[in-house]
Write a protein that binds this DNA or RNA. Sequence first.
DNA 1: ACAAGACATCGACAGTTGTCGAAACACGCA
DNA 2: TGCGTGTTTCGACAACTGTCGATGTCTTGT
Lengths: 131, 131
Amino acid sequence: MSNARTLPLLEPDGQGVVPCCPPLTERPFTAEEAETAARMFKALGDPVRLRLFSAVASHAGGEACVCDISDVGVSQPTVSHHLKKLKEAGLLTSERRGTWVYYRVEPSVLAAMGRLLTSPAAGPAGATTGN
Amino acid sequence: MSNARTLPLLEPDGQGVVPCCPPLTERPFTAEEAETAARMFKALGDPVRLRLFSAVASHAGGEACVCDISDVGVSQPTVSHHLKKLKEAGLLTSERRGTWVYYRVEPSVLAAMGRLLTSPAAGPAGATTGN
DNA sequence: ACAAGACATCGACAGTTGTCGAAACACGCA
DNA sequence: TGCGTGTTTCGACAACTGTCGATGTCTTGT
């Protein structure tokens, strides 16, 4: 139903994707950057979704059928609801093959998320590494 | 006020901290791991909080006075509310010096978050790096 | 065509969250 | 001591979120 709401953290640019935001420690986020990045953090901000995402991300082949990962303590409609949220956030993609639906992670998004949190080699806040 | 609610992502272990969770792609999170990690993602899942966090993290000296970062489009009590949330999530610490209160990031927490998202050298889902 | 299984959508509901203004608290200074 | 400024807490309220059971859709097998 939506086609302008996907992949908030990355923007397609023809042959790949470009990250939306600099590392968190580089400079203060603009309102727009924050809106974009927060959507992704929010998607991972629920324990059930995090388990589902982790289950997909760690599954052999990089993809998993819903039936493989739906044992997270909530009902089946709730699992479906959360997978939809993760898809809307651009973290997962889904594909139906026969009876089953397979979800897989968007690898570049995971990389972009890591880049957001990895301090860029002695950033302003990373000067004192010894805690 | 609270002393059992801080640093969800890391556990103090005498001389430093140890990460709570493996990378997301290593194996499915347990319910407990997910609960812990989700608390942190949730804290960054709000645009205002993300801007505040980024403002502190990128500020010279690794710390910032509330007065330096409170221009994010919401009222001052709301800023205080969000800073409290970030503190409860273990992402920020605060210290009062005279009239002003300074916030700084917990560097090890940032590192732990990055580790969560960085695939551990060709993990199950990281085999295909070229999208 | 029909039944069965896998998954998604719908509608409802309790609990949580973000926001504000008002008030309280902490500190420095006259 | 009292005032002004910076920050937090309080109380209230609308909006959002996670959850469920019931139902719908899609595919396979009989």
